Amino acid sequence: METKKLLKTAIGAMVIAFAIAACQTKKTASNEDADPAHNSMNSVDWTGTYQGTLPCADCPGIRYTITLNDDDTYLLKTRYLEKSDSVFTESGTFAWDQTGGKITLADRGEKFQVGENQLFHLDMEGNRITGNLAEHYVLARVTDQLTDRYWKLIEVGGQAVVDGSTQKEPYMQLHSEDNRLEATGGCNGMGGTYELKEPTRISFSQLIGTLMACENMEVENGLKRALESADSYHVQGDTLQLFRARMAPLAKFVAKEQ
C-alpha cells in the first residue's frame, strides 16, 4: 500500500514537472519568434548608406555602396576594382526575417545582418562569415560622406548657379580609389587630384581641362578659382562647402543621385 502511494506521488511530481517545462518552452519560443521592442528593425537607426569592399575571386575587391530606405527599398552600386570603371546600379526591395535582425535583397537573394551602423554580409544560408576574411564582409554606415558622391554646384563666389544657365550641369566628384577629381563648370571637363588631411583639410592639384568656349563662362571660371584656392571643406548631410581659411564659402554643392 505504501509503495503504491509513493508511486502515485512520484508520477504526480513528474506530471507537474513536465507541465512547468512545457510552459517555459512555450514562453521562450514565443519570445524568440517576435520581440517588438528590441530588434534591429525597431530599435536601430538602420536607414542610410553603407559602404565597403567585399572579397572578389578574380579582382582586388568589389566596391559595395548600398542605401537602405525606410520604405524597405534599396539602391545598390557595385564596382569591380581594377577590372572596370563601370559602376553597376540596381534597385529593388528587401524583406526582414522573423527576428527583425536580418534582411534579404529581393531578386538578388543576398542577406545582411543589420547592426549598429554596420551591415554584415551573410552567406547564402544567412550565417555570419567567419575566418580570416570575416572583417572584409562588413559594410560601414556612411556619415557626412565627401568622396564617391555626385556634388551638384549650386553656388560659386557667393552667386547662385541657376539650373539651365550653363551648357551642362556643373558638378564635382572625388573618387576615393585613386584620389582623382572629376568636374565641370558647365562647359569644359576638368580633372586633377586631391589630398585630404585631418580634420577637414583639402587641396587640389594638377588641374587640367578642355578649352572650349561657351556662354556663361563665369560659373566655370568661378569653380576653377574655388578649386585652386580651397584649403578646407565642410560636409553636413547632403551639403558640401569649400573654403579658403575662414573666409566666406568659395563654392557650395548638394549631393545628387546619378
Rank of each mutant, 00 (worst) to 15 (best):
residue 3 T to A: 14
residue 7 L to C: 07
residue 7 L to Q: 11
residue 8 K to G: 05
residue 10 A to M: 11
residue 16 I to T: 09
residue 17 A to P: 08
residue 20 I to P: 00
residue 24 Q to S: 10
residue 28 T to K: 04
residue 28 T to G: 01
residue 31 N to W: 12
residue 34 A to Y: 14
residue 34 A to D: 11
residue 37 A to E: 09
residue 39 N to G: 10
residue 41 M to V: 05
residue 44 V to W: 04
residue 45 D to A: 15
residue 48 G to A: 10
residue 49 T to I: 13
residue 51 Q to F: 14
residue 54 L to W: 02
residue 55 P to F: 03
residue 59 C to R: 13
residue 62 I to Q: 09
residue 62 I to G: 09
residue 62 I to M: 14
residue 64 Y to A: 03
residue 67 T to D: 05
residue 68 L to P: 04
residue 71 D to E: 14
residue 74 Y to F: 15
residue 74 Y to I: 14
residue 77 K to S: 08
residue 77 K to P: 02
residue 78 T to C: 14
residue 82 E to Q: 15
residue 84 S to A: 15
residue 88 F to V: 13
residue 93 T to R: 08
residue 94 F to G: 00
residue 95 A to P: 00
residue 95 A to V: 06
residue 99 T to V: 06
residue 99 T to N: 04
residue 101 G to M: 12
residue 101 G to T: 04
residue 101 G to K: 08
residue 102 K to A: 07
residue 106 A to N: 15
residue 108 R to D: 01
residue 112 F to S: 05
residue 113 Q to A: 15
residue 115 G to R: 09
residue 119 L to S: 07
residue 122 L to R: 09
residue 126 G to P: 14
residue 128 R to N: 14
residue 130 T to A: 15
residue 131 G to R: 13
residue 131 G to I: 10
residue 135 E to S: 13
residue 140 A to V: 06
residue 140 A to N: 06
residue 144 D to L: 08
residue 147 T to V: 15
residue 147 T to N: 04
residue 152 K to F: 01
residue 154 I to P: 03
residue 154 I to F: 04
residue 155 E to I: 05
residue 157 G to P: 02
residue 158 G to E: 02
residue 158 G to F: 05
residue 162 V to T: 14
residue 175 H to W: 06
residue 181 L to S: 01
residue 182 E to H: 03
residue 183 A to W: 00
residue 196 L to H: 10
residue 198 E to D: 11
residue 200 T to Q: 12
residue 201 R to Q: 10
residue 203 S to L: 14
residue 204 F to V: 06
residue 205 S to V: 07
residue 209 G to K: 01
residue 212 M to V: 06
residue 213 A to H: 05
residue 214 C to L: 11
residue 217 M to S: 06
residue 220 E to M: 09
residue 222 G to S: 10
residue 223 L to Q: 01
residue 224 K to L: 14
residue 227 L to A: 07
residue 232 S to Q: 00
residue 233 Y to H: 02
residue 236 Q to H: 13
residue 236 Q to Y: 11
residue 236 Q to P: 00
residue 237 G to V: 08
residue 239 T to I: 14
residue 240 L to G: 03
residue 241 Q to D: 10
residue 246 R to E: 14
residue 247 M to E: 12
residue 255 A to Y: 03
residue 256 K to M: 11
residue 257 E to L: 12
